[in-house]
């Protein structure tokens, strides 16, 4: 009995964003899909979701032991840490959080942090996401300097928020970086930040959205549904929501007591489950922390993409 299927064919597509020097063989593309995740009979998914390994520009002081031990001694040296992610775990993308410059974390000077970034770049040839400290005032001081130092590397820099986007957008525009637009689990604000940034003359097609990340068991479903809503709106033609999504799964999952206090295996699975759920909702870049969780999710993506 031939069944007449209902295929959802959308007019809109998600923007394709490139990260890394386009001359480099390691440059990456994300986004570009024309349908919901892994529904290959209905839409295209030209670029698989990609995992970014999260590292810091200083040794982590508040990472749980179960997480830290997975990297061993290299966490003391960010450049070696980055290299271990690439060489030992196959990282294709790094996410460096500039924690050391935070006013509460020692307020390291920007030259020292830039030197760390350069050292990472010289040891690892993969594309890079760079996140500020999260303190608006400090980020507006440091990010223009960081951006300039990375000029030509085509990084993804973050984060721009509704109340603090101008400095970062201007500097990304000047130095040719892509930008992360952050919003607090609110589809309207997500759209608003994208509009504000593009109103500054910044190409909307270079924006990657962070809809906020929440961990499994701590409101994950809010992000899941915001992402689904955003995606569906983009597919039916809302160009100001047609940006790929980035989610910071490792950071959120490893804050929970379920990940920290009930043994390493459960912690890893907490990170895997959060990642997989958000991939099913449409995540394009998944920033992760535990290499075992990242490896499992990478294999999952390959399997879903038909590469395994």
């Amino acid at each position: 009995m031939p069944i007449e299927l209902i295929r959802e064919k959308y007019a809109g597509a998600i923007n394709t964003v490139e990260i890394g020097k386009s001359s480099s063989p390691n440059a990456l593309k994300i986004g570009g899909q024309t349908g919901l995740p892994f529904l290959f009979d209905e839409g295209k998914m030209p670029n698989a979701p990609i995992i970014a390994y999260e590292i810091l520009d200083c040794p982590p002081d508040d990472w749980p032991e179960n997480l830290k031990e997975s990297y061993g001694r290299v966490v003391k040296n960010p450049a070696k840490w980055a290299k271990a992610c690439v060489d030992n775990f196959g990282a294709q993308l790094l996410c460096v959080r500039l924690e050391s410059m935070h006013p509460d974390k020692g307020r390291r000077n920007v030259e020292a942090s830039i030197a760390t970034l350069k050292a990472i770049l010289s040891l690892s040839a993969v594309p890079m996401i760079v996140l500020g400290t999260g303190d608006d005032e400090r980020d507006n001081e440091i990010m223009p300097r960081v951006s300039q130092a990375l000029k030509g590397e085509n990084c993804l820099l973050g984060v721009a928020t509704q109340n603090n986007y101008k400095t970062l957008a201007a500097t990304c525009l000047a130095d040719g970086h892509s930008i992360i637009a952050d919003s607090p689990i609110d589809i309207n604000i997500a759209k608003q930040v994208n509009i504000l940034i593009s109103d500054m003359g910044y190409d909307a097609k270079r924006i990657v959205m962070h809809p906020t990340t929440t961990s499994l068991g701590y409101g994950m479903e809010y992000v899941y549904s915001i992402m689904e809503r955003g995606r569906l709106a983009a597919f039916i033609g809302d160009r100001m929501l047609a940006m790929p999504f980035i989610v910071f799964v490792g950071d959120e999952a490893w804050k929970t007591k379920e990940a920290k206090e009930f043994g390493k295996v459960q912690g890893i699975n907490w990170e895997i489950t959060t990642a997989v759920s958000l991939i099913q909702a449409g995540a394009d870049i998944i920033v992760m922390r535990h290499p075992d969780a990242a490896k499992s999710v990478k294999r999952y993506i390959d399997w879903m993409m038909g590469k395994q």
């Binding site: 890893i268 699975n269 895997i272 489950t273 997989v276 759920s277 099913q280 075992d292 969780a293 499992s296 999710v297 294999r299 999952y300 399997w303 879903m304």
Partner: peptide, 9 residues
């Protein structure tokens, strides 16, 4: 790990 990922999906 992949079985868990599969079940969640």
């Amino acid at each position: 790990g992949l079985e868990l990922a599969e079940a969640v999906s």
